[in-house]
């Protein structure tokens, strides 16, 4: 039997197993820490920084930071909410997000986060980048306009599918997701059944011909905010 670790999140005592991350422990305790790049079953990436929490007064990503006995974690504070709001707004202005006609609308985690944070319009100016679309694959397309560089597809393809179809290229503002071919997704061995296709939080990697199968109004975040599943699971206990 491994010993149990106890620590606090916003004053509430939480117990965890050694080796867990703060996010895993919080999830189990029914405390939602907002996130975007994190995805259950994938190696934590720590890139979006939406899950930033204060650990003993120091900012850390909850998805990568391991639990430790007696740590004091702040999550739901004015300061952190402001930082997370800033980061979500950054992701909106960095790409070209057309929620009103995006087929991912209602199922999109970025959009859902914006709703949860009450963001109607970003305070930052739109950067309107020129991004590439790749529709060469018969069943899947990539629209990089909506990509938030979370790396879920990269990790899923490499670690779950065992393929390595996606990888980051370039750096800084020029960083983008590339495919394992000269140029086209059609020249990779990506299949619609791949985990990499399923994990995209936004509308950057999509299956063709199924876009509006679920009508607006019956989509994942149409009635309940993102994170409510985690919060509700705990209240049922």
């Amino acid at each position: 039997m491994s010993e149990t670790i106890t620590f606090t999140i916003d004053g509430k005592e939480v117990s965890a197993q050694p080796g867990q991350t703060i996010m895993q422990a919080a999830d189990a305790a029914g405390i939602y820490i907002p996130r975007l790049c994190a995805f259950e079953g994938l190696v934590p990436h720590g890139s979006c920084r939406v899950c930033t929490v204060m650990v003993n007064g120091r900012a850390q990503a909850a998805c990568t930071q391991p639990v430790a006995d007696g740590i004091v974690v702040e999550n739901d504070t004015e300061k952190l909410l402001a930082i997370r709001r800033d980061i979500i707004e950054m992701l909106f202005v960095e790409g070209n997000h057309y929620c009103m006609f995006c087929e991912k609308s209602g199922n999109c985690e970025l959009q859902a986060l914006a709703y949860r944070f009450g963001i109607a319009a970003p305070k930052y100016p739109y950067l309107f980048p020129k991004r590439e679309i790749d529709a060469t694959h018969p069943d899947i397309f990539i629209d990089r306009n909506r990509c938030v560089l979370c790396g879920r597809c990269v990790r899923a393809s490499r670690d779950v599918d065992g393929k390595g179809v996606f990888e980051f290229v370039g750096r800084g503002p020029q960083k983008r997701v590339a495919v394992n071919a000269e140029a086209n997704l059609a020249d990779t061995d990506l299949k619609t059944s791949d985990k990499a296709v399923e994990v995209c939080p936004v509308g950057a990697i999509l299956r063709k011909r199924v876009g509006y199968a679920v009508p607006v109004g019956r989509r994942r975040y149409d009635h309940k905010p993102i994170g409510s599943d985690i919060e509700q699971a705990a209240s049922k206990k």
Partner: peptide, 21 residues
Amino acid sequence: FIEESCGYCTPCRVGNVLLLE
């Protein structure tokens, strides 16, 4: 800093572009 950012995390990749703007 914009030129040399690795682009991994959002605040550095996007935030500095916004500061410069």
